[in-house]
Design a binder for these strands. Structure first.
Length: 204
DNA sequence: TAGAGGATTGAT
DNA sequence: TCAATCCTCTAC
């Protein structure tokens, strides 16, 4: 049974983005877009902070795109990557502090037919196993950038808590340009889950 | 205003 | 291994 309540703003407004990234594992991400409800268990996340170079808002760099990162915790940050893929992030911390968690993979829970239709494929493990894939499956586009996660279009519900021993930390994907910050173990996965985007580099 | 590059994906 | 594809940002 899935708890349909929404996480409170206090969950997102904490000042430790790494903690929020870990706590988001096991939670259920829901969207109600175009009249269709879809939901998936979060199985992979990445933390980003203005303190490190992989973050778009590194050193508090404010541009039109990064402005959403400075919004209060509990805001959706959606941007276009490689001109093709919409990537969905959860803004954390308080207003003016640019930190966010990238949702990288889900395990489909409800609305499977909708996800299959949007993705144009039926294989469950390939519907939402990547940041671009899950956004497509859930119907999330840059149109949703800046909306609140306590609203009625995109929200997150408490799922079953994931025990610390079932969480694996690894380096983030695709941030080699960040120099030594690319080595931060800020990617978090549910151990043994088959819906993650990329297997851990150093298992165990 | 031009040019370069990107928190990816899927086909070859 | 590589092309797709376009928005964003920087430099001039």
């Amino acid at each position: 049974m899935v708890d349909s309540g929404k996480l409170p703003l206090s969950f997102y407004e904490r000042d430790n983005v790494v903690e929020v990234a870990k706590d988001l594992l096991g939670k259920i991400l829901f969207t109600s877009i175009d009249g269709k409800v879809a939901g998936g268990r979060i199985v992979e996340t990445e933390a980003y902070s203005f303190l490190e170079r992989a973050c778009h808002a590194h050193m508090n760099r404010r541009t039109r795109r990064t402005e959403t990162l400075f919004a209060p915790g509990g805001t959706a940050y959606v941007y276009l990557c490689y001109g093709i893929h919409h990537l969905f992030n959860v803004v954390t911390n308080t207003q003016g502090t640019a930190e966010a968690v990238l949702i990288r993979a889900l395990e489909p829970v409800t609305g499977l037919p909708v996800m299959q239709l949007r993705r144009g494929m039926t294989v469950a493990t390939q519907l939402t196993s990547g940041p671009g894939k899950l956004s497509q499956a859930m119907g999330i586009t840059t149109e949703k950038n800046g909306i609140e996660l306590t609203g009625s279009e995109i929200w997150i519900s408490p799922g079953e808590p994931i025990h610390n021993r079932d969480i694996v930390a690894d380096v983030r994907i695709g941030v080699d340009y960040a120099g030594e910050d690319a080595l931060l173990p800020w990617r978090f996965l549910i151990k043994g889950n088959h819906y993650v985007s990329v297997p851990v580099k150093n298992p165990g």
